[in-house]
């Protein structure tokens, strides 16, 4: 019986590149092709940014089902965003634009640039990032051991929302949009929820729905996660 990797010296790659490139291969990397939003047929001709009253950017791992079933009701799909199964939805009735973004840090800088035209013309922008609870850093972490979710805001003025403290931060498209709005001194409400269940289940979704409703985002009052096939394992 062999033990693969035993005795091998694994030299760590440098921290410089997120997409794991070594110093001696850096100069041979082909430049990236420009990403584009893939518009649905209905919007293919116009492609002009929607002047929304509210732009909601929700980002996290395995967020698509939650986003489409809870937030995208009565909306029309505008385009797919080139980061896994991410998409943009438009609700013409309440002029709410919704970006549902699967966690993909490699493309996040470029996707941010694709969404900035929409963020520029939006009257108000709300970003929400979902992260695993284990990523939350605090000197008093034991206080949160029984919490389903830890809700924090970054520069948010909403009542009852605790401000995120260093060294915590958010990363990704939501962070990019929030940074740009903040730099342009445009209104931005940015939130992060550290949840103990990813993908969200009906219980873990409750703090998320409560926050969204409190900041005026149109959404349903509950969430039913997709049914999973039985694993046929005896427990």
């Amino acid at each position: 019986m062999s033990c693969p990797g035993f005795g091998e010296l694994n030299i760590p790659s440098s921290r410089a590149f997120w997409d794991d490139c070594d110093e001696d291969e850096f100069e041979n990397i082909t430049p990236a092709e420009k990403l584009e939003l893939k518009f649905e047929a209905e919007w293919a001709d116009s492609k002009t940014p929607f002047e929304s009253d509210l732009l909601v950017v929700i980002e996290g791992s395995q967020i698509s089902h939650f986003g489409t079933s809870v937030l995208a009701k009565d909306t029309k799909r505008v385009c797919s965003i080139p980061a896994k199964s991410s998409s943009l939805h438009w609700n013409p009735e309440n002029k709410q634009l919704l970006a549902i973004l699967e966690d993909d840090l490699t493309m996040s800088g470029e996707v941010t640039e694709l969404l900035l035209p929409f963020a520029k013309v939006a009257k108000k922008v709300v970003t929400l990032t979902l992260k695993a609870k284990v990523e939350f850093k605090s000197e008093e972490i034991q206080l949160y051991s029984d919490d389903i979710a830890i809700v924090r805001g970054v520069g948010a003025t909403e009542k009852g929302i605790t401000e995120l403290e260093a060294p915590n931060f958010i990363a990704g498209v939501a962070a990019g949009v929030a940074t740009w709005r903040d730099q342009q001194e445009l209104p931005i409400s940015s939130f992060v929820i550290y949840t103990d269940k990813i993908p969200l289940d009906s219980t873990a979704a409750q703090p998320v729905l409560k926050l969204l409703q409190s900041v005026g985002v149109a959404c349903t009052s509950s969430y039913i996660p997709p049914r999973k096939d039985s694993s046929y394992l005896y427990m």
Binding site: A32, E110, V154, A166, N168, I170, G172, G176, A178, T179
Partner: peptide, 27 residues
């Protein structure tokens, strides 16, 4: 000021330094 580019993963959060408490971190 700050710089943004597709090469940089965007980050946003509370200030990293005591002397500028109202700043927000960026990439």
């Amino acid at each position: 000021g700050s710089l943004s580019h597709p090469a940089l993963i965007p980050v946003y959060g509370p200030s990293a330094y005591q002397h500028e408490p109202n700043e927000k971190v960026s990439s």
